[in-house]
Design a protein around this nucleic acid. Sequence first.
DNA 1: GTTGACCTTAGAGCCGACTCTAAAGTTACA
DNA 2: TGTAACTTTAGAGTCGGCTCTAAGGTCAAC
Lengths: 151, 151
Amino acid sequence: MEELLKISELSEQTGLSAHTLRYYEKHGLIQASTRSEAGYRFYTDSDVRRVQFVKTARNSGFSLDDISQLLSIRVDKESHSCQDVTDITQKKLDQVNAKLAELHSMQHTLELLLESCCGGPENATHCSIIEALDAGVVDKEAFGQARHEST
Amino acid sequence: MEELLKISELSEQTGLSAHTLRYYEKHGLIQASTRSEAGYRFYTDSDVRRVQFVKTARNSGFSLDDISQLLSIRVDKESHSCQDVTDITQKKLDQVNAKLAELHSMQHTLELLLESCCGGPENATHCSIIEALDAGVVDKEAFGQARHEST
DNA sequence: GTTGACCTTAGAGCCGACTCTAAAGTTACA
DNA sequence: TGTAACTTTAGAGTCGGCTCTAAGGTCAAC
């Protein structure tokens, strides 16, 4: 006995809003196996599993486009290799690593700025953060160097 | 003798496009001190320094909104404290750290996925990445645990 | 038979920071 | 005088992933 779910029920089961589910459908990620005569979507267990796959992949950092590719592998595993899958995954990891590097650099800069400034209630006439930004010194190592010397 | 720059010259000096400079002006970050009769923007040295401040702050990770606040401190340092400046900076650092945590978690997940899969030319019938995403196992520690045991 | 909770669609709006277009005016130089 | 290279403006488009709206159709309960 197949239990068919309406969109709100699928929403409840997956934690994705009905809006999002329709959005995913519009972008070809998922589909309701059947529709009522009135056009209401009805989802099977297999549909639910597919949606959960999408959700898990989203949580893992994959874009909808990545997921689209992963899904076409999932439905026809014989026609794809493990390498196809790792290629997608590796590419995503590369992107994540690139973004991490960028953010680490920002983190470093912001930490240096914070360390350099007293942060107190005195007025900002000689605030070293404002001064550093004014000197454009932030990208250069000089800023970190200068701080190091004075420590 | 004050040397006035046209927008394309400012663009050259700063590495920001004329489009971007107009965009910054529209959003209240910068302004040309004078305009020619025909309406052409002309920038002074002081304008250039302000633009460079904006650019440095952008490179450091600050949003245009942050920079807007930093600029109002910069032009009236007496009315602001160092704490005003560190508040903005700390808030930004908190955001960066939050994003870093998120990305590290993705990195971890993707690395586990990659380690679990052979990545070879054999077909994806038993691909452990697809299986892991299917099992929704990615958020849970179980995935990492399972791998650890089998190692 | 009427309320109210659901469902449908196409399409607009949002976030941030640009990026670009179109149509028109200006300037420099030959 | 022509023409090429600038400049101006308002406003639209881009990216990704939703999020929401409007206007209507459906369904179950009372």
